[in-house]
Design a protein around this nucleic acid. Structure first.
Lengths: 134, 134
DNA sequence: TTCGGATATTCCGCTTTACGCATATACGTC
DNA sequence: GACGTATATGCGTAAAGCGGAATATCCGAA
């Protein structure tokens, strides 16, 4: 019953918010920490849970790990992510998450993978890791 | 976060099968026991859980209690029940449940509420409570 | 009122889960 | 190599979930 596994992943608020964010675009761990205002270990464990159940995939980018929805999602996941987007549209928590995501990404000068790079040769100088509070 | 409550209800196999059955038609408790081959206490508890979270409604019919999806389901429930039906279509467990449901109802001579009535003035005489093993 | 059937509830044990702390691992830079 | 940062994992604990046995409640019939 693979469907149950999907629902088990969806029935925790942190995981639900993570998946909702990922339904819009891939993100790295530090972004989740910032957007959800949650400690690293909490984010990391929920991401591990999602990964173990094949609801997310990872790709290492240097020291950072980018999480995304699977390239070939199961039928159940596809259906539920679509349903989730429908349900989230008017939900304050989720829409606030999207705003924070936009803000977090705005603090990055470049594509996702770049936003977490150390500012050794950063163009603007203000860009840095998103975990570094301004 | 009402959506979480819905997912919490969906993430147990017994509850999921109950909701799937109810998405087709109302049923009384004894039917669930027969269709799911589960003990009374187990069914009853999961139904109570669903009722507490407003995913099902009850209507007493004499000694029996008929469960059904709410007359005015929430947006989240509507979306997820539709999603569930999509996901279930080719699933062996759920399609088998539907077959058992048809069989259980066939053993009843009449509309749902009648199938659980004692055979005091039953027409055919063979019809009885669905819990009464043939 | 008593009885039997349908359903709900309580109590108990077991397993799972969520969380935080501390620590470990992986990577890039020097 | 050492060091700092990003992320993961192990451990302990508190809470929640699930199942079953026993019991309680509700209802209709006699």
């Amino acid at each position: 019953m693979k469907l149950i596994e999907v629902y088990k992943c969806l029935c925790d608020e942190t995981r639900l918010r993570i998946l909702h964010l990922l339904s819009h675009r891939p993100l790295c761990v530090c972004h989740f920490q910032e957007i959800l205002s949650a400690p690293q270990v909490k984010i990391s464990k929920h991401l591990a849970y999602l990964r173990e159940h094949a609801l997310v995939e990872t790709q290492r980018e240097g020291a950072w790990i980018v999480y995304s929805l699977p390239a070939k999602p199961s039928r159940e996941l596809t259906a539920n992510m679509k349903c989730l987007q429908d349900c989230c549209r008017e939900n304050a928590v989720f829409t606030a998450d999207l705003k924070r995501m936009a803000k977090a990404l705005a603090n990055c000068d470049g594509p996702l993978a770049d936003c977490c790079k150390p500012k050794t040769k950063s163009k603007t100088g203000t860009a840095g890791r998103s975990t570094a509070k301004a």
